[in-house]
Write a protein that binds this DNA or RNA. Structure first.
Length: 290
DNA sequence: TCCCAGGAATTCC
DNA sequence: GGAATTCATGGG
């Protein structure tokens, strides 16, 4: 992998184990627009990023700097990590992961922002991905900071807790968040009063962190695990949703298993690489059914 | 009209 | 305790 600054853009050559479309569309992220199969607009860290897949395993990040790439986007897309080692380990744990890993070879686990992940995955319950995206965009447009216009569309960052200080549960409801409105409000309140904070998560081990997050109304094990995996880089978290349950039962439990049992099995089988296994399997399972 | 959606809270037995 | 029901909204 080679990072080549070009004018106002950043060209990254010879990226392995990465595809921008797979990484964005595997279900971990909701705050982006697809321009076409190679080009996306990504909103994160109070910025709008135009990014495009280039020729021969390259990637172009438009209108950014080397410093910004190193300080933000490399970590955001997890480009600094060796995924061949991850894949090798997972395959050594179970070679039956091969079809999922081969099909979704370009997925990386992103490191997104904690608060946005918390709110997004509270929204995600009992919703489909396009609906989740719609609500994330609506909340951003209503309360977030304008970050730029591309192809005629205005983009807004996901609001900070501070920007939502005066927002009520009723305000969330008016955006059609439905029964999730009081959940969003409870999460917001706890972040605003400091009882939930990213700093507060650092010292906690996974089990304690899970309980910590589950103290928020509307946050159960699955949502908490997603926040841990995608927002706090707990790469051993293994969210069990309906898709994962389905494929794990197919692979490992002939007579079915509840979510707790599946999560425990995954901890034992995949260990610190559970999150990667989860995402390959989730995307593979969900895509196959389409 | 009916059914389901990257679930979680509540109610029921 | 664990299983069934409810929750608000949109789309097939």
């Amino acid at each position: 992998m080679e990072i080549v600054p070009q004018n106002r853009d950043i060209l990254i050559k010879d990226i392995k184990d990465f595809e921008i479309d797979q990484t964005l569309e595997c279900g971990q992220s909701f705050h982006f627009d697809r321009i076409n199969e190679d080009e996306y607009i990504v909103i994160a860290h109070n910025r709008m990023l135009r990014v495009r897949r280039g020729e021969k395993n390259s990637l172009v990040l438009y209108d950014t700097s080397y410093e910004e790439y190193k300080s933000i986007w490399e970590d955001y897309f997890d480009l600094g990590r060796d995924y061949s080692a991850i894949k090798e380990y997972l395959l050594s744990r179970d070679e039956r992961l091969a079809p999922a890993i081969e099909a979704k070879y370009g997925v990386r686990i992103m490191h997104q922002e904690f608060f946005e992940m918390l709110m997004s995955f509270i929204i995600s319950q009992n919703k489909q991905i396009p609906q989740i995206k719609k609500l994330v965009f609506a909340i951003s447009e209503k309360w977030g900071t304008y970050v730029g216009t591309m192809y005629g569309k205005d983009y807004y960052a996901f609001p900070t807790p501070k920007q939502l200080e005066k927002v009520s549960a009723q305000d969330f409801k008016e955006l059609k968040t439905g029964f999730r409105a009081p959940y969003l409000y409870d999460a917001l309140s706890k972040v605003l009063d400091g009882s939930i904070s990213e700093e507060g998560t650092r010292e906690l081990d996974n089990e304690a962190l899970l309980n910590y997050l589950c103290g928020i109304k509307g946050v159960g094990e699955k949502v908490a695990s997603c926040v841990m995996l995608f927002g706090l880089s707990r790469r051993d978290a293994f969210p069990v949703d309906v898709w994962i349950k389905r494929i794990m039962e197919e692979m490992y439990f002939e007579n079915g298993a509840d979510k707790k049992k599946i999560a425990a099995f995954a901890r034992d089988r995949f260990g610190e690489y559970g999150g990667y296994a989860q995402q390959y399997l989730f995307y593979y399972a969900r895509d196959g059914k389409k």
